[in-house]
Design a protein around this nucleic acid. Structure first.
Lengths: 338, 338
DNA sequence: TATAGGTATGAGATCGTTCCCACATCTATA
DNA sequence: TATAGATGTGGGAACGATCTCATACCTATA
């Protein structure tokens, strides 16, 4: 593959001039420009980003770091969307993106990103605190999406999960439901915790108490866990005891819905079901799932914009960015057609 | 961030010695090793992969290139799985992966990858021929997953789609179905084309003719397209005219199933429905979808292994690698429980 | 005792850019 | 006519590794 020296030779100028033509900095005569550009075109010359990174101390590469035990991450119905949004915005900003999903060895892949000298990192979902501490030590700019940490000054992009929880409660109670069963995903995960909290707060404020019996805690935020938790609490749930189920994410809700179906209960006629996230599947299930939409598109986009700001200006005005959730009413809570 | 020169200074040896300690090449005294390693530990030194790439002419980075108009790619239920598998294997082989999904400008992102001097590329799904030609010109090793090209000698990883199509026909006819309606996705896409072909071949060999009336061609390989194609051919389909539907992928099949449901037909009692791919959703729909599983895990894995071979040995024995599809029987074609 | 080969080390070229600096030429103004 | 500033160009030092080469010492063998 050709280099700047070769271009210089063939166009009869110095490599300094070639560099100036390419970058557009400094003075160059039209004549020189023409010659150089012509040779570049002929040789299909592609500037070596490695060499450029070397001297500029800037790679124009960023890394996405995620860690999930329970699910391959890229194809994850929720996190995959965020990644997609990041890739789209990053491309538009001329960043290339390393995607690192790491099932056992987050520290190692963080180190890897450091060796590759990424300009910045986007940390998605909850990462163990020691990973975050580790990364902080190197001084690389980073932003967190849908995660949590006790390091302060860190840029966070999150959904207003508490508000979403309240919204869900408002919707269900608005339909007349009084006895609502809750499937609250892993409580060490910020989102699930806040969604439950918001939901309960709303209920309490309206004097609609939820007993501890009415809450099950699936071990994971998956379809299977939702299904299982529903089945394990089936006796508390008995037909008629509750008229609605709220899952702190869609997968859990869908798992529950599946179990209810198998028990011969019709959704929404006998039991209404609601989820949270609005993943793609939720609009095509039978019945389609009412849910609270999280703006994953915006999450990824804002994460990129913020990271870029951090990289270039080394500081940022707002440190916590909260996105507005949106109620999406579908057939699983309503008798009308969607 | 510290460099090899600093390490050398602090441990009282030359940078040559430090380099030898790190790489393990050449002779070094135990004493020197100890000193250097200690300093490296103290400073949390991370070798600069950029500088290393510079001299070695090898980045240990690879790129994934995909192009899809109709769907964000990473969160795609089928392609996302392949990407996940690639990331897992690549990490194990110490490659970092650039993921480039490109909706409008494949040529530009291919150029980008060339500038970043990736060691190799994995091209997923169909890419336009001019993109492939463009990439070939640069002489970077690349492999194709689930795509097609007329350049020969290119390493291809594909599913035996024709065989899968036959398998589907065998399954449905084995259940006694004689009148089968087909939803055949975009025929310019290799997989959809071959799946249809395999299915028809089997039918013909068994003297079960399929008239052109029995085939609809959804405009895309999506849920919506499947739903629409089914609805548009509803009059040909009339209740009783067909006892089964075969979609050339799961999304199309699920879209069709949704429409059938809405028309009041029960699956599988009145109409059996079958798809192809075995995406995650298919196991949790109501009813779960019978399908032909494509080994996406293996696809991604093999793609990495092959690319690595190409990178290191610049040649490879087999150029076409075909994976075996597997029939997955679920409730949508059977009266028994799954 | 001379010499071959193993062990250990450092100097310095190299990879392909960017960018600073020196220098040359041209034009406008005092 | 002298000089300041704009325009244009090339030389060469970075950036941070790797790797070849020269050199030196030590040990074993003829």
């Amino acid at each position: 593959m050709s280099n700047i020296k070769e271009i210089a030779l063939l166009s009869g100028v110095s490599k300094s001039t070639v560099s100036r033509v390419i970058s557009g900095h400094g003075y160059t005569s039209q004549e020189a420009k023409d010659k150089v550009l012509k040779v570049i075109q002929e040789l299909q010359y592609k500037p070596n980003a490695i060499a450029r990174a070397m001297v500029l101390q800037r790679t124009h590469n960023i890394g996405i770091l995620i860690y999930r035990r329970d699910y391959p991450i890229v194809s994850h119905p929720f996190y995959g969307k965020i990644i997609d949004a990041i890739l789209a915005t990053a491309a538009r900003m001329n960043y290339s993106v390393f995607v690192t999903t790491d099932h056992e060895m987050s520290l190692r892949s963080a180190d890897f990103m450091m060796e590759k000298r990424v300009d910045g990192l986007i940390l998605i979902s909850r990462l163990e605190q020691n990973v975050i501490d580790h990364i902080s030590k190197f001084g690389v700019p980073y932003v967190m999406v849908n995660g949590s940490t006790n390091v302060d000054g860190v840029v966070h992009i999150v959904n207003r999960d508490q508000e979403g929880g309240r919204e869900a409660a408002r919707h269900l109670t608005g339909l007349g439901h009084r006895k609502i069963f809750m499937l609250a995903g892993p409580q060490d995960h910020r989102s699930h915790h806040l969604r439950l909290e918001g939901f309960r707060d709303y209920m309490q404020e309206h004097h609609l108490d939820i007993s501890e019996d009415a809450i099950a805690y699936p071990v994971a935020s998956t379809f299977e866990a939702g299904y299982r938790a529903m089945s394990e609490h089936w006796e508390h749930f008995r037909q008629g005891a509750y008229t609605a189920v709220f899952g702190t994410n869609d997968m859990i809700g869908l798992g529950a819905m599946k179990f209810l179906h198998e028990q011969g209960l019709s959704v929404p006629e006998q039991v209404a079901v609601m989820g949270f996230d609005d993943i793609d599947i939720s609009s095509i299930t039978n019945p389609p799932l009412t849910t609270i939409r999280v703006d994953t598109q915006q999450m990824g986009h804002v994460a990129c914009v913020m990271l870029d700001k951090l990289i270039r200006e080394n500081s940022v005005k707002e440190t916590i960015l909260e996105l507005k959730p949106e109620l999406v009413i579908r057939h699983s809570t309503s008798h009308q057609d969607t």
